[in-house]
Design a protein around this nucleic acid. Structure first.
Lengths: 133, 133
DNA sequence: CCGTATCCCTTACGATACTG
DNA sequence: CAGTATCGTAAGGGATACGG
């Protein structure tokens, strides 16, 4: 048996992202994926329309933004509100669950942004040690 | 000009992941990417050898694990320690910076795992509303 | 304005085989 | 054990055009 002391109060959860077949892995990918993370981050300031969102998430194509929003809506993280006006107006906003995810995500994003100098420095060291060979 | 009131006490950081050309976007992708996130998560318990890591991150191929580790090492998040023994032994562990990233990442991972029931429920509602059309 | 559909290219990825 | 090399497939993703 393994020393229970070592496993730091780990809950026996039904979902484990490290297991290949676990559905949580798919959701994590929606959340942390290239466009998913940025979309959730952008929406954390409040609701946005499709094209507003598209401008905030610099570089995303219509296709990928649409696809990303569908996945996040399906997972219950984003709410889509279409108003039957003309011209049409559609607002996207985070659900309560989505807000919790976005908060954690933004913590990570801001941390990475704040440490980019260290990262860039590490890269130079790595490249210097390897490129010189 | 934009109303300064709207921008909620936002620091003027030199790096902004929402900008297409910012290097922080690349690092975020290494960290949150499919295998990057799981690798960092697996290493947060302590150092692991290549094949131990491979078993923990269920489903990763040798190629992708190797590639992922190189990217994380280059960004200064993972430390590689090779011992010139025979057979060779190589240990991977998180750097202090890597530990901070992994902590935030695990917070997100555990949160998602803990809310998977809500996510799965949301999916059923979504599919029921759409599949029935 | 809000998307979907199509085309097409590039990258990611996995399987396998091989080297130190 | 710890990887690298090569190959083929599958998915990601951008551009454009078009529909509601």
């Amino acid at each position: 048996m393994d020393t229970a002391q070592e496993r730091t109060a780990e809950q026996e959860l039904p979902y484990n992202v490290f297991a290949k077949a676990c559905p949580s892995r798919g959701t994590l990918e929606h959340v942390t994926g290239r466009w998913g993370a940025l979309t959730l981050g952008a929406l954390s300031d409040g609701s946005l329309r499709f094209n507003e969102l598209r401008r905030r998430v610099d570089g995303v194509s219509e296709k990928m933004l649409s696809q990303t929003l569908h996945a996040l809506e399906r997972d219950g993280l984003v709410l889509r509100e279409a108003q039957p006006t003309n011209p049409p107006r559609v607002d996207y906003e985070l659900t309560p669950l989505g807000r919790e995810v976005a908060t954690r995500l933004l913590g990570l994003i801001h941390f990475v942004e704040g440490r980019m100098d260290d990262v860039l420095e590490a890269r130079e060291r790595y490249d210097a040690a390897r490129g010189g060979l």
